[in-house]
């Protein structure tokens, strides 16, 4: 069997596996990400600005966005470790619904590749995508292929009461662009 055939077969097998490694990572994330710590990431002061609309200052909420360092760093390190479980470059992003407006959600932690199928660049918070709403409601992991060349697995994040308080987006790209998002 020629090297070309071996390469083609390997690629086919990898594609056939689909979200396998991402699915495994997402499943592990549901176990490892501490929802109670996640709830402490955004400060109370910051939350009070989250949905504020100031006609004279469109950046009022973003300028007041703030986090608790310890909770952020602890969670981010967990997400970074989880990303090492993927077999190619991936990010594990943390998303949490807004307490003040359950119809909206915000990415709370992003990572080095800045990959996401859901985040419109720069949005502080955004309307809840139906896929995320489903995961937050029924606790089932979901594989999403919305953007060409990207695959995400969404998985719930639980607190100590057993409530779903957020979700992770484990996301990868078939052809990562080393210069994308360098901005």
């Amino acid at each position: 069997m020629s090297a070309r055939w071996i390469l083609a077969l390997t690629s086919w097998l990898a594609a056939a596996q689909g979200p396998g490694p991402l699915e495994q990572t997402a499943r592990t994330a549901s176990v490892m990400v501490d929802g109670d710590v996640c709830l402490r990431i955004e400060t109370a002061r910051s939350k009070s600005f989250a949905t504020m609309k100031d006609p004279r200052d469109p950046w009022r909420n973003a300028d007041n966005y703030d986090v608790d360092d310890e909770a952020f760093i602890r969670t981010k390190k967990t997400l970074m470790r989880l990303a090492k479980l993927c077999d190619s470059a991936c990010d594990v992003n943390l998303w949490m619904p807004l307490a003040s407006d359950p119809g909206r959600i915000q990415v709370v932690i992003r990572n080095v590749h800045e990959m996401s199928q859901f985040w419109p660049w720069g949005a502080l918070n955004q309307e809840m995508p139906p896929e995320m709403k489903a995961v937050l409601t029924n606790g089932q992991r979901m594989t999403v292929r919305k953007k060409p060349g990207m695959i995400s697995v969404l998985a719930p994040v639980y607190d100590s009461l057993g409530d779903i308080v957020g979700l992770v987006e484990v996301v990868s790209q078939t052809k990562p662009d080393p210069r994308e998002n360098v901005k």
């Binding site: 966005y65 703030d66 986090v67 360092d69 760093i73 709370v108 932690i109 992003r110």
Partner: peptide, 18 residues
């Protein structure tokens, strides 16, 4: 910047003294 959710502090135009 914190608002872009990568890191827990503002490198650019720091708003908060800590």
């Amino acid at each position: 910047k914190k608002r872009y959710k990568g890191f827990p502090w503002d490198g650019d135009e720091a708003r908060f003294a800590r």
